[in-house]
Design a protein around this nucleic acid. Sequence first.
DNA 1: ATGAAAGCGCTAACAA
DNA 2: TTGTTAGCGCTTTCAT
Lengths: 321, 321
Amino acid sequence: MNDVARAAGVSLKTVSRVVNGETTVAPDLAARVRAAVDSLDYRPHLGASMLRRNDRRTQTIGVLLDDVSHPFSAALHRAVEDQARARGIHVLTGSLDRDPVRERDLAAAFAERQTDGLILAPSGEDLGHLAAHTGMPVVFVDRVPIGIGGDTVVSTNVSGAAGAVRHLISHGHRRIGFLGGHQRLSTVRDRHRGYQRALGRRAGPVVHDLHDPTAAEKAVVALLRGPNPPTALLSTHGTVTLGAVRGLRRLGRQHDVALVGFDDFPLADLLDPPVTVIAQDPARMGRTAAIALFERIEGYDGPPREIRIPTTLIPRGSGEL
Amino acid sequence: MNDVARAAGVSLKTVSRVVNGETTVAPDLAARVRAAVDSLDYRPHLGASMLRRNDRRTQTIGVLLDDVSHPFSAALHRAVEDQARARGIHVLTGSLDRDPVRERDLAAAFAERQTDGLILAPSGEDLGHLAAHTGMPVVFVDRVPIGIGGDTVVSTNVSGAAGAVRHLISHGHRRIGFLGGHQRLSTVRDRHRGYQRALGRRAGPVVHDLHDPTAAEKAVVALLRGPNPPTALLSTHGTVTLGAVRGLRRLGRQHDVALVGFDDFPLADLLDPPVTVIAQDPARMGRTAAIALFERIEGYDGPPREIRIPTTLIPRGSGEL
DNA sequence: ATGAAAGCGCTAACAA
DNA sequence: TTGTTAGCGCTTTCAT
């Protein structure tokens, strides 16, 4: 900035004014400054300006999700980015793989980088450290945090699962199996609660902690070959649903055992049978979380909000057997 | 840091030493400093430290892709993140939607934030501005940049397409249609070149600028209902492949007209027929690009490198009709 | 409308 | 081993 000032024959402060678009600069001076900026390839240093500035905003937020390459996280990420861009805000990202250590480390690293706020899919461990150690607004998505309060955006997991089970019941099913992901996660627990609520004491076989399609596939095979097999299955996550589809096919039972799973996926309608899903709306979740975060950043100071984004049952065939 | 120094009864510089893990501090002093850090919830200000530091690294890179929610971009993004994390580096992301304006704006914004480097999937417009206006190492991925040199990581697009066409020819096909995405993109042009190379003067009908599945679906229907219809199709992108699948089904020709498409996708093997694809390896592309970028950041100064990541033909059924 | 001086939080260079 | 001083690039405050 000093070099630019010298080249333009003005003071450093005048350059600062021009760069920041202040209108109190004479047009000819401003033009000279801009010419010098161009010829010297001058680029303002945001870190330095933010150091001295009063509002101390970096115009950057952090987004920490399970895995940015996972379709759900990726869609949510994109929605956050769109909201951020509309406000001239940039996004630092990180994948946590549900590791509490990485969750803490990355939150701390973002805090040192002075991000203005954070959107976090909590790992499921205690987050008491966040409150003291970040000093920035945090909005939680997908799962309810433990050991800390804050705005939280989640799907209607209980009613979504209960609705799916009632759907299966209405198609004559009485013995419905539950295929669940990590039991530690609030999503899985909520979906299990919905399942139980809809079935009452007639709950069927429950399998928990299915981490990947292969595990889910094996679980389905074991369930159907075991005693008193279910006639229908409810799965809590896209990955589990995928494994369930494969398991049913392996047994040749895909037209025989009903299946409804959380999370829509691209070719669900082209499979045989087409897969009935409980679709979440990750884009809307991301948008909602971003809006809540920006409200907090702007100073909104109300009590923690829990915002529920509705799920949609999409009947395609596999759930109507 | 001043407050911490006062609380610990030491000088500011001693606090700085402890915070930066220098070993030349007496253990008792260091302990007092750490206690003060904890009790005051002190967090170092990375921006300020980087302003004064000699190496001036922010330990942050930028990643600009087509759309972080697109499976290809998302997988690439994740691979970059993993390489970055191994080095304690953080990642700023942005989706360009192939818009040259956003490409320029975001590159400039990242430069103002002093990112140490940039990984960019170029939009296809001239990038001459980048050289002067960013002043940081840039590595290009997926597509070859125009108007600028630099390390570039791309798939073996020409040979991948040619191999797929030869595969179709070996199964008896003589009239093979080409379904292409944005013609402006180097990927599409290269894949078209491979198609032409394998077919010579017997090239079949070519459709360009298919932006989404719907357009591709319509194109397939038109092609097959038109005069002299192809007996096989080659598609350049996952989205186009998807539309082609739908188009063939709509006509009931999916067991009759062969299809090979770029980009693998999750349920390709469960469709009827299973879809033969030319799989790219976005994770490897991201990893390779990140490694190249970090070499540049560390000062490597060789000539621009063009690194080709092999594609893999995965025969599943639709390409062997 | 323009400029001079101080200082944001931190580290480099040097001194003790 | 510890502390002092200067200054990174910028904006503030205040003066002109």
